[in-house]
Each structure stands twice: as C-alpha cells, then as structure tokens.
C-alpha cells in the first residue's frame, strides 16, 4: 500500500458516500444516471468474487464490502425507493453497447484464461467506461447539480491517483499490470473535459453547465 493508492481508495469511497448521501438526504436521484450505477455494481460484483476466498487484509475486505453494499444500495434507492425521481428520459445510454464489447474484449485480452481472471478483466474494462452513461446524461441535460459534480470529481480523481500509484509501484517494486494501467488511463481520460469544467466553473462557485 502507498499513499497514492490510499488517497485513491479514499477518494473513491468519498465519491460513493457523496452520491448515496445526496440521494438519501434529498430523496431524489435527479441528474444521476441509474445505468452508470448499475454498471458500477456489476464492476464490483465481478471484481470482488474472491472476497471470501482470497483474504488480503482487513482493509481490503472491509473496503470491498463497503463498495458492494453502497453500490447496490444506490441502485436500490434509484430504481425502487426514489424511482419517481429517476430521470429515465435523459438516462438513455445503451448499456449493452458497453457490456457486450467489454465482455468480448475480456475474453480476448486477459492475463489468464480462467473464469475468475476473465471476470476480473471484464470488471477492469467495464469500470473504464461505466461513467459514460452519466457523462452522456449530463451532456443531454446540459448541466449537473453541484453535489453531482463533486461526486464526479472524486470518482475521476480516484483512478487518476491509481495511475500515480502504478507509476510509483513500477519504480519501487518493478510491478505493473498493463491491463489495469491501460484501462485506468482510458477511464481517467474520459473525465478530462469534466475536470476542466469542474476546475474552471464549480470551483469558482458557478453551476456546472455544458456549452449547449
């Protein structure tokens, strides 16, 4: 564990908590893409199958459990409890356009052709593009609530910090995982235009609006 990975995990945890609290406290999931949340729940499910078979540390197991519980709780709140506030008209990105190619790629490009490894690879590839329905929804509505933009900033920062962690681990341990690194770079690049808008607008107290 290094400080970059720890900060990355905390940023990820912060993002998940911000979103869950936003939906719970405002009793509304307006402006939030339910499809992205379903994809994130799928990412954690396929990545943490070894939760009970491969104990690494209390921290590792606790975080995996928290991520799983919070992501399913968010999906539950969005599609059941506060369903009336779910903006399905703007959340129209076709998930199958992501899941099918990612599933195929996981079969073709992986470290080891075993079920657990292919599912892990699938979760890595899927996580890289899971935010697309959310970014697509914001581009359709042309704006995002400030709290949602904080959520996205924390979520985007998490994988950016992981990239720094991978550079650090490469130089200190000689360790690298090309699949995770390439997918992590794609994932972070997808946030770039949002990061620009966040820093130039939200941090100046303005509403996050996309140029129409």
């Amino acid at each position: 564990m290094n400080i970059f990975r720890l900060l990355g995990d905390l940023s990820h945890l912060l993002a998940i908590i911000i979103l869950l609290l936003k939906i719970w406290r405002t009793r509304s999931c307006a402006g939030v893409s339910g499809k992205s949340q379903i994809l994130f729940a799928l990412v954690f499910t396929t990545r943490y199958l070894d939760l009970f078979t491969n104990f690494i540390s209390m921290y590792n197991s606790a975080m995996k459990l928290i991520y799983l519980v919070c992501s399913y709780a968010t999906v539950f709140l969005m599609y059941f409890k506060f369903k009336a506030t779910y903006d399905s008209n703007h959340d129209t990105f076709r998930m199958e356009f992501l899941v099918v190619p990612v599933g195929g790629l996981a079969f073709l490009v992986n470290h080891d052709f075993t079920p657990l490894e292919i599912l892990w690879t699938f979760s890595i590839y899927l996580e890289a593009v899971a935010i697309l329905p959310q970014l697509f929804m914001i581009s359709k509505t042309g704006e995002a609530e400030t709290i949602t933009s904080h959520y996205l900033f924390a979520l985007g920062s998490y994988r950016a910090l992981y990239i720094v962690n991978w550079v650090f681990r490469f130089y200190t341990e000689g360790f690298f995982d090309l699949i995770a690194i390439v997918a992590g770079c794609v994932q972070t690049i997808l946030y770039c235009d949002f990061f620009y808008l966040y820093i130039t607008k939200v941090l100046k107290g303005k509403q996050l609006t996309l140029p129409a």
Binding site: D9, H12, I56, W120, N165, F175
Partner: peptide, 10 residues
C-alpha cells in the same frame, strides 16, 4: 506481467 500481487488492489 501481473502475478497474484495485482489483486491486492481494489
């Protein structure tokens, strides 16, 4: 190449 070590990341 990633040995089992890569699975210690979240």
């Amino acid at each position: 190449v990633s040995d089992d070590d890569s699975k210690d990341e979240l």
